[in-house]
């Protein structure tokens, strides 16, 4: 007996909710997106799953994920993982991206190149090489970007006329500004000289103090004359001669100049506490008070090469000898 075949109509699944389709409590995707961005604005440090759950509990997780992914690809938001909890957070991407909306692609390229140069900045010509743009175009772009306060130019200390470009908010690196000893790209030699003298005086005082106890023996006296660069830095900072913070490295460059003056010597020892070496300094006396030859005029004479037994410059008519013998 043949039974009649009954073809059942399958129930078709609901199609995936489209952007305009109702979801949850009747919110559109655009509305959800907007709300997310609002939240991210309220929590500039980022929102996580929990916040989203609290705010829009009825929204399907899949929808949230989709929206977030779209925002990511549009580069409107950033995603990061918290260090401790390893949770995922989303936050709004910073100004430049949003502001970049009004900027065209060439400018974007230039911006990226400048951004990559970090706080050392990059020279006009190098931008040209990397972007392969021509000079006039580039200059126009740079001017525009500067106008928008996205980038700035900083004159480099190595060449007064050379300018490097970097992102507006960045602090220029020491190699550009010259470090603590440069202000407005000018080397502050007076400051250096003052610090030089000051450091020397500090070390001299230490040595004097050490000599007050000769009964303990010369070795003790010598060892008591040393000061480390850290200690010297502290003393100088306490004197408040300079307005900015002097680092130990700064002081060490000054102390090096004193070593090269022949007034102090350095001895590097390893400190039990910190890694690496501790540099200590003390004053030293020169081996001679002065060379004998500089006590006669010939030793400092500027025209000695012309001097002879015949000619205009001779010992017998030498003006310097006349002055010296007076």
């Amino acid at each position: 007996m043949a039974a009649p075949v009954v073809i059942k109509k399958e129930k078709v699944d609901d199609p995936r909710p489209s952007a305009s389709a109702d979801a949850g409590e009747g919110q559109t995707e655009a509305e959800i997106e907007r709300r997310m961005i609002e939240l991210m604005g309220e929590f500039p440090k980022g929102i996580n799953d929990k916040i989203l759950e609290t705010d829009m509990p009825n929204v399907d997780k899949k929808i949230k994920v989709a929206i977030l992914n779209r925002l990511l690809s549009q580069e409107k938001v950033n995603i990061f993982r918290a260090a401790v909890t390893k949770e995922l957070f989303w936050c709004l991407k910073q100004q430049p991206t949003s502001k970049l909306k009004g900027v065209d692609s060439e400018e974007k390229i230039v911006m990226r190149i400048i951004e990559e140069a970090g706080n050392k900045g990059i020279w006009n010509r190098d931008i040209r090489t990397k972007s392969s743009l021509n000079q006039t175009t580039l200059n126009k772009i740079l001017k525009a970007l500067e106008g928008k306060k996205l980038i700035k130019s900083v004159s480099s200390v190595s060449a007064a006329k050379k300018k490097v470009y970097m992102l507006f908010n960045l602090q220029p690196d020491r190699s550009v500004t010259g470090g603590s000893w440069y202000s407005d790209n000018e080397f502050e030699s007076e400051l250096v000289d003052v610090l030089n003298q000051q450091c020397y005086r500090i070390l001299q005082q230490k040595a004097e103090g050490a000599k007050q106890k000769p009964l303990e023996g010369p070795l003790i006296v010598r060892n008591a004359s040393f000061l480390s660069s850290k200690e010297i830095c502290q003393i100088i900072s306490d004197l408040k001669i300079v307005k900015f913070n002097l680092t130990v490295e700064d002081i060490e460059t000054i102390l090096d100049t004193l070593v090269y003056d022949g007034k102090i010597e350095m001895s590097a020892t390893t400190d039990g506490y910190s890694d690496g070496q501790v540099k200590t300094y003390r004053t030293v006396e020169k081996l001679l008070s002065s060379a004998g030859i500089v006590r006669i005029p010939c030793g400092v004479c500027p025209v000695i090469k012309m001097c002879g037994t015949v000619g205009a410059v001779q010992p017998k008519n030498c003006v310097y000898y006349d002055q010296w013998l007076d």
């Binding site: 500089v294 006590r295 030793g299 410059v313 003006v319």
Partner: peptide, 14 residues
């Protein structure tokens, strides 16, 4: 001048 003014005078004799 044949004998320019001396900037650095010789040190005194000991």
């Amino acid at each position: 001048p044949l004998f320019p003014t001396l900037e650095n005078r010789p040190l005194p004799l000991i």
